[in-house]
Simulated scan of single mutants.
Amino acid sequence: MITRKAYAKINLGLDVTGRRDDGYHIVRMIMQNVDIYDTLTFEKNDLGKIRLTANKDTIPTDEHNLIYKVCALLMEKYDIKDGVDVHLEKRIPVAAGMAGGSTDGAAAFYGMKELFDLPITQEEMCEMAVKLGADIPYCIMGGTMLSEGIGEVLTALPDMPDCYILVGKPDINVSTGWVYTELDSKEIEFHPDIDGMCDAIGSGDLGGVCQRLSNVLEPVTKSKYDIIGKIEALMEDGGAVRSIMTGSGPTVFGIFDDEDKLKKAYDKVKESGYCPELFMSKPVNPKY
Rank of each mutant, 00 (worst) to 15 (best):
I10E: 05
V220K: 03
D184Q: 06
V174P: 05
E182C: 06
I136A: 14
E218I: 05
D267A: 15
Y180Q: 13
P119E: 10
H25R: 07
R212K: 15
L47P: 01
G254H: 04
I227E: 02
E271Y: 02
P192V: 12
A95T: 06
G48L: 13
M29E: 15
K90N: 05
Q32S: 11
V179P: 12
R4A: 13
T17W: 03
V179I: 09
I92Q: 02
I120T: 06
P170N: 09
E76L: 01
L88F: 02
I136V: 09
D162N: 13
N65T: 12
D104W: 06
C139I: 11
L217R: 04
Y225F: 10
V220F: 00
G208T: 03
S185Y: 01
I244F: 03
M98I: 02
K264Q: 09
K186I: 13
K81M: 06
V241S: 13
C71R: 02
V252P: 13
P286T: 05
K261D: 10
V252Y: 00
I2N: 10
Y78H: 12
G18V: 02
P286Y: 06
D62S: 11
V86A: 10
Q211D: 15
D171A: 02
D57K: 10
K169P: 03
L66K: 08
R51D: 07
D260R: 05
Y68W: 09
Y180S: 07
S102P: 06
E277P: 06
L146D: 07
P93G: 12
M141H: 12
K44L: 03
G23V: 01
G196A: 05
A233K: 15
L52E: 01
F279A: 10
I194D: 07
D267Y: 08
L234G: 11
M160N: 10
T39K: 13
D226M: 04
N173A: 11
L157I: 04
G202E: 08
L154R: 04
T251V: 03
I10V: 15
E123K: 15
K287F: 06
V34C: 04
M235C: 11
E152D: 11
P219F: 01
V84R: 15
M197G: 09
E123T: 11
L132C: 15
T181P: 07
L157M: 10
V216N: 10
I67G: 02
K77F: 01
I228T: 08
R51F: 04
R19S: 07
D22P: 13
L146S: 03
I227T: 08
L52A: 04
K169L: 05
L278I: 00
E277Y: 00
S223C: 08
G100E: 04
V130M: 08
V252H: 02
H25Q: 08
D135T: 13
L213F: 03
G83A: 07
G204R: 08
A99Q: 05
